[in-house]
Design a protein around this nucleic acid. Structure first.
Lengths: 114, 114
DNA sequence: TCATTTTATCGTAAATTTACGATATAGGAA
DNA sequence: TTCCTATATCGTAAATTTACGATAAAATGA
């Protein structure tokens, strides 16, 4: 895809991966679903999304690899939940990203641009 | 792709679009580049990214449609800058998204999961 | 042991994304 | 008007993503 690999710091790379993972509407919803259930869930995500089990498993893998959720084998099933550390990272990074570059300094500007 | 369209609210849809746009490392970098230059920029994004002009134009379009940047025709060129409103929205949404579901309530839990 | 349950992984087809060159479009200068 | 500059858009090829069914793998219960 990319001829010259774009250089990003480790933090930026992780943040971009998180954003990419959450940019998919299915994963976005899964994430909210997991958050709404404090409790860990497994395969009723399948029921929730009405997608094939293998598809859901794949989405969960993406979220897990992005560090947004955590999975733990619980008997025959796997128990997932939101990663507290991951979400803290996400929020912190977004918060600190463009600190106050975008506050409307001059309200005179109609659209804040140019 | 999706057989059953995933239902998201308008805000969620916009947020997901923003996350998706920023999930691409090239666009991620362009965004930071635009932010570092308070001033509006046009085609030196091309020089910055070392990608084809048409490719950059496409990326800028995605960022613009996501409401993350604003473009304004300035003579023969187009002047881009970060959208203050867009970034405010992004930050607010992320902040409010999972308010305090993920604070480590019980430090006893080794990984905060299950 | 043997079936059952729950997930993960594999292989694959369709859709989407990304990048490029070529081509239009629009504004400014000569 | 005519040329030059700066972008946007079109068409297209390669890569990636997404979804599915089929198949493994792992733990529990009969």
């Amino acid at each position: 895809m990319e001829r010259n690999a774009i250089t990003l710091s480790a933090s930026e790379t992780r943040l971009a991966a998180m954003l990419k993972a959450l940019g998919n509407p299915v994963r976005f919803r899964i994430m909210k679903y997991l958050a709404s259930r404090q409790v860990c869930i497994t395969g009723d995500v399948v029921e929730f999304t009405a997608l094939a089990q293998s598809t859901v498993s794949q989405h969960l893998k993406v979220l897990r690899q992005a560090g947004l959720i955590e999975g733990e084998v619980e008997g025959p099933a796997t128990c997932y939940c939101v990663s507290a550390e991951g979400l803290r990272f996400l929020k912190t990074q977004i918060e600190a990203w463009l600190p106050d570059c975008c506050e409307p300094i001059e309200p005179a500007s109609p659209d804040g641009c140019c």
